[in-house]
Design a protein around this nucleic acid. Structure first.
Lengths: 201, 201
DNA sequence: TGTACATCAGTGAACGCGCGTTCACTGATGTAC
DNA sequence: TGTACATCAGTGAACGCGCGTTCACTGATGTAC
């Protein structure tokens, strides 16, 4: 993480920035993002509200930085899941990884994919990296002749649907279905497989 | 809407309640729910903040009432979409109706399906009525021998996946993909069909 | 090594603001006789 | 129909609170000579 060209002063600053980000993510987990105020962040890192301005210009800057971190984690998770043998297994693993990400980092997940509570739109094109990983796998499948290639149902749309399915079951699980007792892991695998089956020629 | 047994006084009260709900939904659309305060609702209906207490105990009560309305609309939309000939068409129509609901009523949609900004969980089991409409169609399909009936992939899981897919593409469209130029209607139909195809025996 | 000064990281008090809630109140409408 | 009273719908002022931001400040650390 620490850049070798950083002066000691710069790297201390970077560390503090990170401490602030970590504390804020914690607060988001605990209380929901709308209850997280500038002052509450300052309290969490034992600073005066004024002191925080040394590190960030405003709450949006902090939230944006956290969302970027979240995106990085998601990107990495999907890439890590992209190393199975066949195209189908790669896709299934990615779908599962997506859901696991939502469960493991609901704070990030909500931040990245919601209309932000501030009313601002979520980042411009969230998760483009992760999305491309999915689309690439779809393209591989199409190249191998695994999938239909109707005029309409191209790789882009196939990837869109897959992403939507993974996203949908993930967000249902962490919102409406939170607390439900069910073997979601198995159900998720089944429905992801069903979708892929439907793409085949 | 108005109950015939209501006294004039009671029905005036009901009307005012409705005016408050409508104004609040408007505010939610305009500014996002977290920016909607008790006082801003009062301002919107030209009441003093104190006057509102005649009609609702607090903001949560108002929001809950709106969420109930939203659920009613969604239930009705899915039921209305449930009148095509074959099971497959019924499902496709419902999926489209779901997405149309999200587009047409993003305020309701976010309210019903998000972790509420207040940090409260969304209502206990949102959209059970609408969900059951989907599951019933799945069951019909299974009864007719249209779908596989593996041990694992039962109607419940099929419905869960369908709901997740519709929910996922809907929420992507109104958040991350908002403003994108694409023929989502066609893409949605294709991916919904692909999923259903994957359920078939 | 010591001294003088500059920079840095952070403080504490203050500002004006919008919030939710309370309370005593008022003026209009409804009811009883 | 008129009068006396009760209820109703809503007001206005006040409360204490947490908020974001500013500003003059301080004490510690770093730098130059």
């Amino acid at each position: 993480m620490s850049d070798l060209t950083d002066s000691p002063a710069e790297s201390r600053k970077t560390e503090t920035r990170q401490r602030i980000l970590d504390a804020t993510l914690n607060l988001i987990h605990e209380k929901g993002i709308d209850k997280v105020s500038w002052r509450s962040i300052a309290r969490a890192v034992n600073y005066s509200p004024a002191g925080l301005y040394e590190y960030f210009d405003n709450k949006d800057a902090i939230v944006d930085a956290i969302a970027q971190e979240g995106l990085g984690i998601l990107d990495a998770a999907l890439e890590a899941a992209d190393h199975s043998q066949g195209v189908e297994e790669r896709l299934i693993d990615m779908g599962k990884a997506y859901v696991r990400f939502a469960h493991g980092h609901p704070g990030y997940f909500n931040l990245v994919f919601s209309v932000l509570p501030s009313g601002r739109r979520a980042r411009e094109q969230p998760a483009t990296g992760a999305y491309e990983t999915v689309r690439d796998a779809m393209q591989d499948g199409a190249k191998q002749g695994l999938f239909r290639t109707d005029g309409v149902l191209d790789e882009e749309i196939m990837a869109y649907g897959f992403w939507g399915l993974a996203h949908g079951i993930a967000s249902l699980q962490i919102t409406s279905l939170q607390g439900f007792e069910a073997d979601f892991q198995q159900a998720d695998e089944e429905v992801l497989r069903a979708y892929i089956r439907g793409l085949k020629r």
